[in-house]
Amino acid sequence: MIESRALIVDLKRNSLDDGPGIRTLVFFKGCPLRCVWCHNPETKHAYQELMFDAKVCISCGDCVKACTRGAIALSDPKRIDRQKCTRCMECIETCPSGALKLAGRPWMADELFSEIMRDEPFYRHSSGGVTFSGGEPTVYLHFLSGLSARLKAADIHLNIETCGLYDHELFERHLLPNLDMVFFDIKFIDPFLHKKYTGRDNGVILDNFLRLLGDGRIDVTVRVPLVPGITATGKNLSAIAEFLAGHGIGKIELLSYNPLWTGKAAGLGHTLEYERKVFMEREEEDRVRRTFKDFDIGKY
């Protein structure tokens, strides 16, 4: 199947944390993993969702009137009864505050290409470019195949942030030749823990990782999300450190925990299996970072 469209949640311009220079981040919607701490819950499912932001809502009640199914009630703390909601999205049209939003809009590759290219001078003058993120961008490998080739032809630096679960043959054929770098997530070494917290085995992921390394064609940066009590345990991080050291990797990026995701997940009506509403303590974070004392820990 050749996808002519991809579902995209957002384009973040002027991003300075996801690769060199000034970059545009493209958040693709859909991911094969089900990480319980997913920081971008709006990008998990590969279908459009209705998102509610309680902080912005002014409780005017226009959405209640607009809903033909009686799925919205101001008295309901979740605001939307997802059982009744048919995702007709009429309520979004009436909402004056932007509290009700559509997560995910299908984009044509052409359209996305021109949107990205609006900031081309900024990429060029800062040695920046584009980073595909998500979600998991490789869900749209065929879409990316054409797009990345065009961007490559336009001399745009390309990076991808991936969870590593993809078909390597297709990845190698459709995307890899056009990429300039890869941010590769490693969450667990223990397959049991991986399965427990992300819903999927890590066999293919680690396999893909090693193949990418072995291939040697591309700059790979390992990123580890620090999730208190889950990935950020002494045991897990030591295992990761040992695994990376064993493969001669001396550089790593650690992603700090940010509790803001729980609000977003609730606004999407997702059920939370894990919840932590505070940032990591300074000491805790310093302690876990020490696990990687022999590594060059990146800025971010």
């Binding site: 001078p121 003058h125 800062s126």
Partner: peptide
């Protein structure tokens, strides 16, 4: 360098 990039663009 970043700010120079904004200015140049």
């Amino acid at each position: 360098n970043q700010i120079t990039a904004y200015a140049k663009s």
